[in-house]
Nucleic acid binder design. Structure first.
Lengths: 150, 150
DNA sequence: GTTTTTGCAAAGCTTTTGCAATCCG
DNA sequence: CGGATTGCAAAAGCTTTGCAAAAAC
């Protein structure tokens, strides 16, 4: 099941409960993810944490991020190279993002239209339990004017 | 750059020319891809060819499929596990598909709405060179009535 | 005192690459 | 011929897993 999935239900109460025991490592990873404005890979997040002096294993980062995604607390996306990227999901519903291919920045976009289109398309084809993934990429204004790289 | 990408230009004439020399292996792979109704991974396609008695290396299948995708002759998609799936693209423009999570069948869907939505969203956010990937999955009618598996 | 979680290293996967042999034109 | 292509095996990533030590409750 893809990450940015309509079928994920993120109940308001007890969200964290699904993550099992609360450990320092999990708190650290979650905090880092929340603090990250944009999509990050497990590897990058791990490197960042190590840099900051935190002692967390890469496996733990992977396990925690996967758990968060399964719990509906994070959106995930596959970058073209197949790497999995994670981003904290603030609201109860999943979001779609527009990401800059040059600097990596991303902004959440209104996807009303896509949501309903997905529903309708599925219904029209006799499909049930629709899920969808949408990835939008482009070059942001900053990167259009200036040269590449942040 | 993701496969199902609006920015890919598939010129009508000389499409095949971009693939370099015409060899038996390439012909075989292309034929297999065209013959395949749905998305297939390089590995599955390779296995299928070997089964049929064709003598093609896995690397060649990868190289050929990648070339086809770059030439705009195939759409590609990442499945949730990160595997790359390929599908022959009949028309000059990229398509979007609705895939059944149970039996794997997929149907091309009309994505007018999404295309324009992508354009507009990007423009509204001062992004240029928009590209997008859309993946729709669900359970098809056949799989809803009968139990799993084709 | 159990039971879960961690972290390391090793394994698993898909995909890519190096390079000699081979094929196409 | 001469350069493009193939195929094998090895390498490269990213991610997962096995298992003993550590932490949580």
């Amino acid at each position: 099941m893809t990450s940015t999935d309509t079928t994920i239900a993120a109940g308001a109460p007890g969200e964290v409960a699904r993550l099992g025991r609360s450990t320092q490592q999990r708190a650290t990873v979650l905090r880092a993810l929340v603090g990250s404005e944009d999509f990050v890979s497990a590897q990058v997040l791990h490197a960042r944490l190590i840099d900051e002096g935190a002692r967390v294993g890469l496996s733990t980062v992977y396990r925690t991020l996967t758990a968060l995604a399964e719990a509906g607390l994070a959106d995930t996306v596959r970058d073209p190279e197949g790497e999995r990227l994670f981003r904290h999901r603030p609201g109860p519903h999943h979001r779609h993002y527009l990401r800059c291919r040059t600097c990596g920045r991303s902004v959440a976009v209104d996807s009303h239209l896509v949501e309903t289109w997905a529903e309708r398309t599925a219904t029209a084809n006799d499909f049930t339990e629709v899920a969808h993934t949408v990835e939008l990429t482009g070059i942001c204004a900053d990167c259009t004017t200036t040269s590449p790289r942040p």
